[in-house]
Design a protein around this nucleic acid. Sequence first.
DNA 1: TTCAGGAATGCCGCTTACGC
DNA 2: GCGTAAGCGGCATTCCTGAA
Length: 319
Amino acid sequence: VVAVSRQNGRYRYYYASVEVAGLRLLTRTERNLEVVIGFHAALVAIKQRAALGLGSFDARFREAVRQVLAELGANAEAMGLKLKVVLRTPAAPLCTRSYRLPAELEPGLRAWRRLAMARQALGVSDGPSGAGQRPAEEVQRAWGWLREEYLAVMAEAGRRREPALARLEEVERLRQGREELRQRRWEQLRMQREERQQRLPTLGLHQRRCFRMESGRTREKPQGRKAGDPRVLCWRAEHAISRALARWAKAEAPGRREPAAAVSQRRCSGSADAAPLLARRCSKRRRRAWEEAAFAASCGRRGSAGVASRPRLADLRAE
DNA sequence: TTCAGGAATGCCGCTTACGC
DNA sequence: GCGTAAGCGGCATTCCTGAA
């Protein structure tokens, strides 16, 4: 449900919107929030039904609209229900005009089918490892098809050709820029891989570790000590703490994405504290590392019992 | 009040590096 | 050799805003 404010909140409207498989469903705007929440419930029901079941998507969508409106006793015209096709291209989205329901449901779905097929031909890029593997002529041909379909759909919908053409050209410029960037990144990665492959096989174990240290990803381990040696234990604990802190700092950095594990943890319990997450979800090996980290962290404050409890991450950080 | 479309956000899959 | 974390790009979805 989207709130639209105008003139510093003097006017406030609401409307509901959901998107499913490249179709955006919208309702009319309305000042009464309760009414729009009702609209939204209907849209969500349509979306859920259209996503499930057998048969083609457009058939399921058509049926979902009919069923949900009938069950809720709602009227598409009264809701101001409309759909528009939002075409996700590898550069930027392309939108069609809105098609009013129920009168323009079929033209809307026809436009969606045509554009979806052309979009499929354009394909999905495969990331760095797959970049550059698709011939440029093939991509150009697919883009040409998508371009023609978009212009045809907009013309059929009664839109002028010039604005559509201008938007297509803008998207094409963005696409070319991104493609060049992707090619450059892929080339850099390829060169890095080649360099590693040339260096590593000729090195001994010690030299390989030194090579990793050069890249700043490992810390020096006390040499010539057995696994149970207190210095080795301290090194491992210190290492575990610094890794945990590095992850924590990254997670807290502005603009950084929340780690997947923290997301699942939040979903499970609503808490963002990493300690119970690790206690419950991590492997035995990782749990052991945590026990060691806890041991190290509690070195300076072990009481008479001499047993370290698993520390909270905030405590570890303070330590 | 509506339309059109750009920006922001989060999820997913893949690859790579590292530690055990 | 295996498990794990992180980086990265693509995509779907939602949010937001300027213009008409």
